[in-house]
Design a protein around this nucleic acid. Structure first.
Length: 423
DNA sequence: TCTGGGGTCCTAGGACCC
DNA sequence: TCTGGGGTCCTAGGACCC
């Protein structure tokens, strides 16, 4: 059996943990640059705040409905996520952390010794008590079905207590009949359109449809899903693997026209990618730089371009990668456009220290020691960083974060002070 | 003025090899 | 130039996820 554990309204819930006055209040968490809504408490959903709502268009709405609006605080969410995952690990040795707020647990043979419904209740109790984050638990014989069970647990809290188990065919059929095809894990926009054209509107319709059609039109991925929903397990927990791509991309707080400004951003993004690369002890063999105008501003000239630069040698040095990124930028930068977004992606990794000997072109060996030193100083100093000369010393890329909550759990100065009274 | 960011896997087709 | 069969590697793009 598998369980899918999912934190309810995760970012909004994290904000609430350290601010009890937000309990039962509508909360909306904004994306980078305070652009649009990316997480909502139940109360905010009820009040009618849509997912992805652009903040500037909803200003009045927020005020009228007394929505508490906050900037996203990833230091807080990352730390809270670790706490949740640590607690979950106590319930089984087999766990796959699927995203910042979700994990699959595997219970091999547990059903012989435990009442899994009761076990699910315990998981929920322990995590909520230990972290303050409410969760939903779905349990079923396959991963795809545990996703379905989780949806039911979340949708009907009164009936299920946020824990639901699919452990027989009757429950499975009932659940699949209830679930619209577009809400099935693995069915996105494209497949929904094609399936509906075949008259398929629920998950149950889907598993009763011809297997051949599914295989032909949805490939091996679709076929696996089809089997999983029928109760035949095809997907096991996945091993944690190192990343195969690392990206840093951002929208700008305003349109940029100036080459120097954009170059500074690209170099900063590149340094961020290089830091992540070194954490993974990898070097990259290729770097992608892209640049785009604001697609929402239809009256402005539109432009998008990207350039893939194959590197002459693998590296994870800030200095070398910054040079290559600038080279790539120069291939695509065009004067006269108003740029809104840019990004850097590093790909094609090889492990650190296994560089091929290349007589003429190689990563400068001195950079390794230098980067180690830079990383260690940056770690110690926190936000005061050693930067390259091309980077702007004053800025970070999160320019607009007007309603940022404190780093309650990761920064000592922001920790909550607890007063004690004599009884 | 103002609309997120970061990933994975699979497939088809081209280039090339014997 | 045509005639045949069998294979690999790489890349772009599609589809999906949170």
């Amino acid at each position: 059996m598998f369980a899918l554990v999912d934190c309810n309204n995760f970012y909004a819930s994290c904000e609430r943990v350290f601010q009890p006055k937000l309990r039962n209040q509508p909360i909306a968490v904004l994306s980078n640059n305070d652009g649009c809504v990316i997480s909502r408490s139940n109360e905010a959903k009820k009040a009618g705040v849509p997912m992805g709502a652009p903040a500037y268009k909803f200003q009045d709405f927020f005020e009228k409905n007394k929505i508490h609006v906050v900037s996203s605080n990833y230091a807080l969410y990352g730390d809270m996520s670790n706490r949740v995952m640590n607690l979950l690990s106590e319930f089984t040795p087999e766990i796959e952390i699927y995203s910042i707020d979700e994990a699959f647990l595997k219970f091999e043979g547990f059903e012989k010794h435990f009442d899994l419904q009761e076990y699910g209740n315990q998981i929920r109790y322990k995590v909520t008590k230990g972290t303050g984050i409410p969760i939903s638990v779905g349990i079923a014989p396959t991963k795809a079905l545990s996703k379905v069970a989780n949806k039911i647990a979340k949708k009907f809290p009164e009936k299920t207590g946020n824990v639901y188990i699919i452990d027989n065919d009757e429950k499975r059929i009932k659940a699949l009949n209830w679930l619209p095809i577009e809400d099935v894990w693995g069915i996105g926009y494209g497949h929904t359109k094609r399936l509906k054209a075949q008259g398929i509107t629920t998950a149950l319709d889907f598993i009763n449809y011809e297997e051949k059609w599914v295989q032909k039109n949805m490939g091996i991925v679709g076929l696996r899903l089809y089997k999983e929903l029928q109760g035949i397990s095809c997907l096991d927990l996945e091993e944690v693997t190192d990343k195969k791509n690392i990206a840093t991309t951002r929208s700008f707080e305003t349109n940029y026209k100036d080459y120097e400004l954009i170059k500074e951003r690209i170099v900063t993004f590149t340094v961020s990618c290089a830091e992540k690369l070194r954490k993974q002890k990898a070097c990259c063999n290729a770097i992608v730089v892209f640049l785009k105008t604001n697609r929402h501003r239809k009256e402005l000239d539109q432009y998008y371009s990207n350039y893939v630069l194959q590197l002459p040698f693998p590296t994870n040095s800030n200095i070398e990668l910054a040079k290559f990124a600038t080279e790539a930028l120069n291939k695509i930068f065009k004067e006269g456009f108003e740029y809104k977004k840019a990004g850097v992606i590093v790909t094609d990794f090889s492990p650190e220290g296994t560089q091929q000997l290349n007589l003429f072109q190689n990563s400068n060996p001195k950079h390794k020691k230098l980067m180690e030193t830079v990383d260690s100083i940056n770690r110690k100093m926190g936000t005061i960083k050693i930067k390259l000369a091309t980077q702007d010393l004053k800025r970070t890329w999160k320019m607009k974060q007007e309603k940022l909550s404190p780093k309650y759990s990761t920064k000592i100065a922001d920790a909550i002070k607890v007063k004690a009274w004599d009884v």
